[in-house]
Amino acid sequence: MNLLKMNSFRWLLPFLLLSVWILIYFNLQSAANWFIDDVFKMEGGKHITDALRFFVFEVPKVLLLLVLIIFFVGIIRSFFTAERTRKALEGRSLFAGNVMASLLGIVTPFCSCSAIPLFLGFVESGVPLGVTFSFLIAAPMINEVAVVLLFGLFGWKVAAIYVATGLFIAISAGWVIGRLKMEKYVESWVYEIQAVHGDGEEVSRDFSDRIQSGYSAVREIVGKVWIYIIIGIGVGAAVHGYVPENFMAGLMGKSSWYSVPLSILIGVPLYSNAAGIIPIVSVLIEKGVPLGTALAFMMSVIGLSLPEMIILRKVLKLQLIFTFVGVVSLGIVLVGYLFNVIY
């Protein structure tokens, strides 16, 4: 009986939490207004009032969105493992393989410290090099925290553009690398080691385990990025109306053709997680930097990182690393120009 109670509680808890979430989320604006106007009795129309109102509303909103999405991402990811993804990609033809690898790159759990074993495991079992690259490009670049932040700060259109263009870059860059036939620029020992293809499959997990994965994903990811979000939105709120408009636009503006490649050159050596960079991007856009340029900057920061290149140097020769960075940068430049023209 006790066990039954425990179990039904475990099933009810997510629904309970969801109703609390909905209740809070849809009353945030009025709560923020009440806080600013009635509790602090701040004067309307002033910069400081607007900045604080923005901060008090945006921080809980973005954090709430993040908790909800990461919870579901955690559950979805518990269905995908690197092994299953590899199995799905074995022996795929080039183009279809690139598409699949990029899509799987979004949902398969990945951290840059696993890049090497993953690369080896893929190449060893006959996943083509170009397809492997599609995965390695998509996995860090299309980041769930970035999707949530873009959705929270700019709306669903920008978030969708980001996912679509990220997929486009991962598919086409992987395809190009595959066509260039660069297998000889993989360190030779990679093909020599004999990896055991142990099934090594773990015990199966039932659905309440997967809900636990959701909770622990929230703890792990939100626990890591919340501070960046508060600082980022804080900075965003502070410069809200203080830095002269068009100050940045002169530097990275639409009129100058070099703005997109320049922002990528700045972005690649910079290494930050999505939570840290997106509030900065939102400030850039507000100050007149066009969407394409800002998107290109963001993608180069989170998609191409120096530490990952250094890790990959163990398995790839320099020529291949340069090709990889070159092809991906080119893709980001194209996306940048495209959106500067459209918007």
Binding site: T81, A82, E83, R86, P109, F110, C113, S114, P117, L118, L120, G121, F122, E124, I193, Q194, A195, V196, H197, G198, G200
Partner: peptide, 8 residues
């Protein structure tokens, strides 16, 4: 790699 795993 000898253990055939891909994620650490």
């Amino acid at each position: 790699m000898k253990y055939g795993i891909m994620s650490t």
